[in-house]
Design a protein around this nucleic acid. Structure first.
Lengths: 267, 267
DNA sequence: CGTAACTTTGATTAGTATCAAAAATGGTGG
DNA sequence: CCACCATTTTTGATACTAATCAAAGTTACG
């Protein structure tokens, strides 16, 4: 039985939501066909009307938009287990592109099968919904990152996120993680130019915050990197994974300044 | 019966999703209590664990994050009918603040009542899910806006979005719409400083793209504004509302340049 | 081993931020 | 209704971050 191919998807849902045996079986039994992806392959194209839902099984993916002058903005990263085009599935039309960042594999699931699963099994519906809300939370953090942090903090923040998200699925070791992207792609994530990305990376390195080896990054002082990136992992809404046997996700002190004509909604 | 207070929420869902009479009644019958909001009042605070879900009924709201240096980034705007804290409800903890932008009203719905409604009525669940996906789509567009457009395009894009979203709910007239925010808030939306926002607005005005009167904006040449902002309303996933009796949401020609080592996923 | 892709470096420019202060606006109490 | 105060908008001068342009190294790959 080929059930096991969808295991990354189940694993992902289980990290944050409880699902009983029956629900788990139902997920693993979804019909699907496998696609092998080379770096750069498109999984979704803007404007497309999809008939199948794709789940990333292996490798990394990213989602991006092109603005009028030809510049590209990467608006999200995907890891094994992620649903790649739920939005376009439900909303009928993709408003962005999803592309493989590395070699990998994806499963294509007929839309109706997935919709039926969600409709008939509330726990699965809630689990998928939760993942969508976490995605949205990450998008919001990215808006803040691109909008309000300078190049160094922005980069540090992204590296922190990348480390934590990869560690969650076992892709990162204790103080070392893959950075499988070109500096141009990094630039498109951070809203910078590739030249400036290069300089920013070197600056972080010179500051002793990171070390680089090929497409891998390591750090000696996690709290320092966290602090440089103003990284608070709360927005990732990690489940039980974020536990004490892991490297502590310490963050610097953070107070919420009261802004403007505040006042509480409490009547 | 006080059903009618939740009508803005129902209206919002109906714009994009079909709901039968029974579903509609179920929504309108949700228990709720009303809160009056003054500009600046908080509806959700970062770190809070909510027990009720808020629906904006009147007025505008915004959601924002504070980065470590004290800078603020507004990551979303809310209009009547919007659910304000679904994410924190499902994910248990708010990772951002939601504040009233103007005077308004919100309804507080007990979490359990809403969750039960969603679980027991698949059509409502799907409708709410769709709204969440649209929200996410808007977040992604904002990432691109802040990351890859210069100040003028960024502002023009935001103004276009504001017009379209307000017109959708009847808050904007044919070529004129309220801009009920200070230039500092505008700056926090766009990742700029308030000084530069001022200059950018004046530049758009000087270019004949907009006119301003108090906190209202009008435009003589919508296509020109759309073009300046590289605005493509697709990401708003408007439903039937986007029809021909409305001002055409024309957009400039847009081709999707093929990037990098492309190639299709088609086997 | 040769070539294309990617990274690195340098020099210069452009776009925005910063700092400071004046002008305009809106609300409030007398 | 007016005077006053707080907030917001506007303007000017200057500084700085990141973009641009160009080219030399380096790495990965067929």
């Amino acid at each position: 039985m080929q059930q096991s191919v969808l295991r990354p998807m189940l694993m992902k849902l289980l990290r944050r939501s409880a699902l009983d045996e029956e629900d788990q079986q139902a997920i693993l039994s979804l019909p699907s066909s496998i696609k092998t992806l080379d770096a750069g392959n498109y999984i979704v194209r803007e404007g497309e009307v999809p008939t199948r839902c794709f789940v990333l099984l292996e490798g990394l993916g990213y989602r991006h938009k092109i603005v009028i002058n030809g510049a590209r903005q990467i608006v999200g990263l995907h890891f094994p287990g992620d649903l790649l085009n739920l939005q376009s599935s439900v909303l009928q039309v993709a408003d962005e592109n999803v592309q493989a960042l590395t070699w990998g594999k994806a499963a294509a699931i007929p839309m109706e099968a997935l919709v039926e699963l969600i409709d008939t099994r509330p726990a699965i519906g809630r689990a998928v919904f939760s993942e969508t809300l976490v995605d949205a939370s990450i998008f919001r953090e990215w808006i803040a990152n691109v909008g309000r942090r300078d190049a160094q903090a922005r980069m540090a923040h992204f590296l922190c996120e990348l480390f934590v998200r990869q560690r969650e699925i076992g892709l990162a070791r204790d103080d070392r993680f893959p950075l499988p992207m070109t500096q141009e792609q990094l630039a498109d994530v951070l809203g910078l130019t590739s030249v400036h990305v290069n300089r920013t990376l070197k600056a972080l390195e010179a500051a002793g915050l990171i070390e680089r080896d090929k497409r891998e990054v390591s750090f000696a002082d996690w709290p320092a990197l966290v602090s440089a990136g103003d990284f608070n992992p709360a927005y990732l809404h990690l489940g039980a994974a974020e536990k004490d046997d892991q490297k502590p996700l310490t963050q610097v002190e953070r107070t919420a300044p009261s802004l403007g004509a505040a006042g509480n909604h409490g009547g």
